[in-house]
Design a protein around this nucleic acid. Structure first.
Length: 456
RNA sequence: GUGGAUGUAGCUCAGUUGGUUAGAGUGCUGGAUUGUGGUUCCAGAGGUCGCCGGUUCGAACCCGGUCUUCCACCCCA
């Protein structure tokens, strides 16, 4: 026998049950995006490598899936180039395309490319798979879906506020308790400025991010190792020790950031945003979290991240404001803000917490038992009528033992089975069996439609 | 990219110091029950023990490699 067929590492097949559950997530998210006036777009699975490279940092570049050029891709290369070790740079010479790594960069490309057709501010949503050559783990796949909403061409913090509302509405609709974490890149930059190490903002934020995991002492040691002066470390310490409610943190930061124009501006943004949130309180908890750094280097203002309050799996939604993104593609001064829902992780959380709805609207409601050709001719028009009434119904395609047909209905969790055999044909009735109670009743076709419709 | 585990029937898992025909539960097929599923009883099918190589008279078991999945880093959705 040949080797069993398989799929690439980190990819998955989805069964009908899994698809029903995934669609529950996608439908919920899409519905809420639409209600907020966002419009859908799609972009190709593959982009030019020049569009993708350098947008996600060195780490990100390594995680890009590259597509080998078609044809004789090595004909133009010299023997020296071909035998080069390590083969790192060779990759970009034999490949010009790559699979998209996220939806934000392709969106930025889209905006720049179609700038003359777009009405700004442009509110778009996009639900598509992305690919990363990462090492798979729980909640981490090489092919996974992102559900992005972005507003581009508006500086207003009302956009951030709307995204927070969307997050809240989505997770309420999915019955998940989440914590929405909020931070601001300008505040982080201000902190770096105040302690006299503006160049090392990235190092500092990464270190702050690890605070919860490795503790204060190790974070400080790491910072010293990264080249931060002892004086700066001393100045940073009170920030790391900052505790208390969001309101208390704001007061502390107002003092800490004094002297940094950028930092104070960031702080004011946070205050404004929180004031909007207070105007119509959310179901989810919103907190200011300075340890939220986020790796992507294009965020410039607000940073958002959402975690499940009930199940630890990393962030299930994240995003922020990026002032400079379209600048990379030659369109300056267009600010955007957006978030991305991680459908696959949300799936894992819902599954773990058993929060998926019992059954979907599209599941078959009624199965006709197949007794043979003569009976089938009577069933066909009734089946058509049921379907026109929006009742998902089936006729078992083969004339087999009733036991087998009943079993099929049972396994598929079809709630009703209709019997139309010789006896029923004779008196123009249909026998309807309720699979849950086992009760049977005789109905006319009209009554049958009525009965199934009202049973929903 | 670094380190550590894992892989036996469709699924969940046993498997004695390496010793003949590799087991259970569940699911599947058939029968008890020829117009009635879920319960019960009986019977049956289904596995070159992830793959390749090595050690051995002999390997599911020991060794090496490889792939998969999982876990911790890194990073992230």
């Amino acid at each position: 026998m040949a080797d069993k067929p398989s799929i690439p590492k980190g990819t998955r097949d989805f069964s009908p049950l899994e698809m029903a559950r995934r669609n529950h997530i996608f439908d919920t998210i899409r519905r809420i995006f639409k209600v907020h006036g966002f419009l859908p777009i799609e972009t190709p699975a593959m982009e030019n490598l020049s569009t993708l490279m350098g947008k996600y940092g060195d780490e990100g570049d390594k995680l890009l899936f590259k597509i080998l050029n078609s044809g004789d891709f090595k004909s133009k290369l010299s023997p020296e180039e071909l035998s080069e070790t390590p083969a790192g740079r060779l990759g970009t010479k034999i490949s010009e395309k790559g699979l998209r790594y996220d939806l934000t960069v392709p969106f930025a490309r889209y905006v720049v490319q179609h700038r003359n057709e777009i009405d700004f501010p442009f509110k778009r949503y996009q639900i598509q798979p992305v690919w990363r050559a990462d090492r798979p783990q729980r909640g981490r796949y090489r092919e996974f879906y992102q559900c992005d909403v972005d507003v581009i061409g508006s500086n207003s913090l009302l956009n951030e506020f709307e995204l927070i509302q969307i997050i809240d509405e989505v997770f309420q609709a999915l019955s998940l308790k989440v914590v929405i974490k909020l931070n601001n890149r300008k505040v982080l930059a201000g902190c770096a400025e105040v302690i006299g190490a503006p160049e090392q903002m990235i190092d500092i934020t990464v270190a702050i991010d690890k605070l919860e995991k490795i503790g204060l002492e190790k974070v400080l040691a790491e910072l010293v190792q990264k080249g931060l002066s002892p004086d700066s470390v001393t100045k940073l310490e009170p920030l790391l020790k900052m505790e208390g409610s969001t309101a208390e943190k704001l007061i502390f930061l107002a003092g800490f950031l004094e002297g940094s124009e950028l930092g104070m501006a960031g702080l004011q943004e946070v205050r404004t945003l929180l004031a909007y949130v207070e105007a119509d309180p959310l179901g989810s908890e919103v907190e200011l979290d300075l340890t939220l750094a986020r790796g992507l280097n294009y965020y410039t203002g607000s940073i958002l991240e959402v975690k499940s309050a009930e199940y630890a799996i990393g962030s299930i939604c994240g995003g922020g404001r990026y002032d400079d993104l379209t600048g990379i593609f030659g369109l300056e001064g267009v600010s955007g803000v957006g978030v991305s829902f991680g459908a696959d992780r949300i799936y894992d959380v819902l599954l773990q917490l058993e929060r998926f709805p019992q059954r979907g609207d599209l599941d078959t409601r009624l199965l006709f038992v197949n007794f043979g050709e003569a009976e089938v001719k009577h069933i066909i028009p009734i089946l058509g009528r049921l379907r026109k009434s929006g009742i998902a119904s089936e006729l078992y395609p083969d004339q087999t033992k009733m036991k087998k047909q009943m079993n099929y209905a049972n396994n598929r969790k079809i709630p009703f089975v209709a019997l139309l055999g010789e006896q029923e044909i004779a008196d123009g009735m249909i026998t309807l069996k309720d699979m849950e109670t086992g009760m049977q009743e005789r109905l006319t076709p009209e009554q049958l439609v009525e009965r199934i419709s009202s049973a929903k």
